[in-house]
Amino acid sequence: MNDDAEPRSIRALRRDAARRRDALIDAAATCFAEQGYGVPLETVAAAAGVGRATLYRNFDDREALALAIFSRAVDRLAVLVDPTLPIAQTVAAMVRAGTGAFSLFARIAAELHLDDANRAAFQALGGRLEAILAPALVAAQRRGEVRDDATSRDLVLALRMAGSLVLPVMSDDEVSAQIETGLRLLFAGLRPR
């Protein structure tokens, strides 16, 4: 047997497992958005093209699945943070890119039943988003765009607030107008006085 055969097969298995996990996250986001947070997990598994056992090998419960959706959304938003850009531009780009995640979070937040471990995981995710935004905030404070006492948590709240203004039925022009107006109002409160 070739020495490289086993490592290649292991790498292939890991790639397949990662693809199945990603398919489950995609399917859950779609199912939760279309059918609500209470959609049967069997429906999520079927939409991902996997069995129920595969779903439970990857996620302990529906809350862990929701956490994975939002964790991936934070990963996608992180690449948009550029401290050299005006903070309103950075936040606008994040709102536009995260619209689906923000609306999904708003839709299922009331239905989340978090135990202590999942609550801690969601809080850690919020902390991660705050840490991602921190360099942009510091740069914006140096440029005089926001008050010195503004925090990364304030920016996360601004993101969530602006994200809630965007609806799936809006045209691109309407989305742009909503984001611009919402951020203008939000950042008026964050500007130095």
Rank of each mutant, 00 (worst) to 15 (best):
Asn2His: 11
Asp4Met: 04
Ala5Met: 06
Pro7Ser: 06
Pro7Asn: 06
Arg11Ser: 04
Arg11Trp: 00
Ala12Met: 04
Ala12Asn: 07
Ala12Cys: 06
Leu13Ser: 15
Asp16Ala: 14
Ala17His: 10
Ala18Arg: 12
Ala18His: 15
Arg20His: 14
Ile25Thr: 04
Ile25Arg: 00
Asp26Lys: 05
Ala27Met: 03
Ala27Gln: 06
Ala27Thr: 02
Ala27Tyr: 01
Cys31Gly: 05
Glu34Gly: 09
Glu34Ser: 09
Glu34Arg: 14
Gln35Gly: 14
Gly36Trp: 08
Tyr37Leu: 03
Thr43Ala: 12
Val44Ser: 01
Ala45Lys: 01
Ala46Ser: 15
Ala46Glu: 07
Ala48Thr: 04
Arg52Ile: 11
Thr54Ala: 10
Thr54Val: 07
Thr54Asp: 07
Tyr56Thr: 12
Tyr56His: 12
Phe59Cys: 02
Phe59Gly: 00
Asp60Phe: 12
Asp60Tyr: 13
Asp60Leu: 13
Asp61Lys: 11
Arg62Cys: 07
Glu63Gly: 03
Glu63Leu: 04
Leu65Pro: 00
Leu65Ser: 02
Ala66Ile: 01
Ala66Gly: 05
Ala68Val: 08
Ile69Glu: 00
Ile69His: 01
Val74Arg: 03
Arg76Phe: 10
Leu77Tyr: 01
Val79Lys: 14
Val79Met: 07
Val79Tyr: 05
Leu80Val: 06
Val81Trp: 00
Val81Asn: 01
Val81Ser: 03
Pro83Asn: 05
Pro83Trp: 00
Leu85Gly: 03
Leu85Gln: 12
Pro86Ser: 07
Pro86Gly: 04
Ile87Trp: 00
Ile87Leu: 04
Ala88Gln: 07
Thr90Met: 06
Ala93Asp: 10
Met94Phe: 02
Val95Pro: 00
Arg96Gln: 03
Ala97Asn: 04
Thr99Asn: 05
Gly100Lys: 02
Gly100Ser: 09
Ser103Lys: 09
Ser103Cys: 13
Ala106His: 14
Arg107Cys: 14
Ile108Tyr: 04
Ile108Trp: 02
Ile108Glu: 00
Glu111Ala: 15
Leu112Glu: 02
His113Gln: 12
Leu114Val: 07
Leu114Ser: 05
Asp115Met: 04
Asp116Ala: 15
Asp116Asn: 14
Asn118Gln: 15
Arg119Asp: 13
Arg119Cys: 08
Gln123Val: 14
Arg128Thr: 08
Arg128Ala: 05
Ala131Thr: 14
Leu133Glu: 01
Leu133Gln: 00
Ala134Ser: 15
Ala134Phe: 05
Ala134Asn: 10
Pro135Asp: 07
Pro135Lys: 03
Pro135Asn: 15
Ala136Pro: 03
Val138Ile: 10
Val138Glu: 11
Ala139Asn: 09
Ala140Arg: 01
Arg143His: 13
Arg143Ala: 14
Arg143Leu: 12
Glu145Asn: 06
Arg147Thr: 12
Ala150Gly: 08
Thr151Pro: 02
Thr151Glu: 04
Ser152Thr: 11
Asp154Asn: 08
Leu157Phe: 12
Leu159Trp: 01
Ala162Ile: 03
Ala162His: 01
Ser164Leu: 11
Ser164Val: 09
Ser164Gln: 10
Leu165His: 05
Leu167Pro: 11
Leu167Asn: 15
Pro168Glu: 09
Val169Arg: 14
Met170Ala: 11
Ser171Gln: 06
Ser171Ala: 13
Ser171Cys: 10
Ser176Gly: 13
Ser176Leu: 11
Thr181Lys: 15
Thr181Trp: 12
Gly182Gln: 01
Arg184His: 11
Phe187Leu: 09
Ala188Asp: 14
Arg191Cys: 06
Pro192Leu: 10
Pro192Cys: 10
Arg193Glu: 13
